[in-house]
């Protein structure tokens, strides 16, 4: 599978994750977002940048826990208010925020939790 960006064919897998992560650019993430039916706004782009920075620093994508704690923690002081931020994330990316953001930021696909049972 592939998508066309600026006349160049970019290789992606079935779910839309980049095959070669060096292919990433802002146009590419926009094209993938279009494919998933998401309209990229400032909030989305800011989060994508955060994901890329975090991955560069830690070599691992941020989890929902990190997002809610680090970014949500700046919004409200109380634990319940952090949770509101998670709601907001699900409003931006209804399917699965972390997986979708990894896709748009050109990061590897998150692994399924080992102990979800």
């Amino acid at each position: 599978m592939a998508i066309e960006v600026n006349g160049k064919m970019i290789e992606i897998d079935e779910e839309g994750f980049l095959v070669d992560r060096d292919d990433w650019s802002e146009e590419v993430s926009e094209a993938i977002a279009n494919r998933d039916g998401i309209d990229l706004k400032d909030e989305h782009v800011g989060l994508i940048d955060y994901f890329r920075d975090y991955y560069e620093e830690h070599q691992v994508h941020p989890t929902m826990h990190v997002l809610v704690q680090r970014i949500g923690g700046k919004i409200g002081k109380k634990f319940r208010e952090h949770k509101e931020y998670e709601k907001f994330l699900y409003m931006l990316f209804p399917s699965d925020p972390v997986s979708e953001l990894c896709k748009l930021a050109g990061l590897p696909k998150p692994l399924p939790s080992e102990h979800d049972g």
């Binding site: 929902m64 699900y90 399917s95 699965d96 925020p97 399924p112 979800d116």
Partner: peptide
Amino acid sequence: TGTVLNVSGYGGGVIA
């Protein structure tokens, strides 16, 4: 094999 699948707006509830 486990994988990830989510109903829109939900983070849990489906064990894929």
